[in-house]
Computed example of a mutant assay.
Amino acid sequence: MGKLLFWIVLIVLVLFVARIAGRMAAQRQADAKPGQKKTSRKEPPQPKPLESMVRCAHCGIHLPRSEALLQNGQTWCSADHARLGPAKR
Rank of each mutant, 00 (worst) to 15 (best):
Q46P: 14
I20A: 13
L70P: 14
L50S: 14
E67Q: 15
V12I: 06
S66T: 04
L13P: 04
Q27G: 03
T75N: 10
G60R: 00
L13V: 10
M24C: 10
I8R: 02
R23C: 08
H58N: 13
G22I: 15
W7H: 12
S78M: 00
K3E: 11
C59Q: 04
F6N: 09
L15V: 05
K48V: 08
A26M: 11
P44E: 14
L70M: 15
A21G: 10
L10N: 06
R55I: 12
G22C: 01
L10R: 01
Q36P: 06
A21N: 10
V12D: 12
C59H: 00
L4G: 01
G85R: 02
P47E: 05
M1F: 14
C59P: 01
Q46Y: 08
D80W: 03
R19V: 11
R41V: 07
F16L: 06
V54F: 02
G2T: 04
F6Y: 08
K48Q: 12
S78C: 03
A87W: 03
S66A: 00
R19F: 15
S52N: 12
E67V: 00
I20P: 07
S40D: 14
V54R: 04
A87D: 06
A25D: 00
H81W: 05
D31H: 03
R28C: 08
R28L: 09
L10G: 01
C59W: 00
R89K: 15
G73Y: 00
D31A: 03
T39P: 05
K42Y: 14
G2I: 05
V54T: 06
M53Y: 11
R28Q: 09
H58K: 05
P47K: 02
A82V: 07
F6S: 03
M24L: 09
A25W: 15
W7D: 11
T75D: 08
A30I: 09
L4F: 11
L15H: 10
M53P: 11
P86R: 08
A26Y: 11
Q46F: 15
G85M: 05
L69V: 05
F6G: 09
L5G: 07
D80R: 03
L13M: 13
K33S: 11
E43W: 02
L70H: 13
K42L: 15
R41Q: 11
Q27C: 10
L70G: 06
A68Q: 01
R19W: 13
L63H: 03
G22P: 01
L70S: 09
R83A: 11
Q74D: 15
P86W: 02
I61C: 14
L4P: 05
F16G: 08
A57N: 13
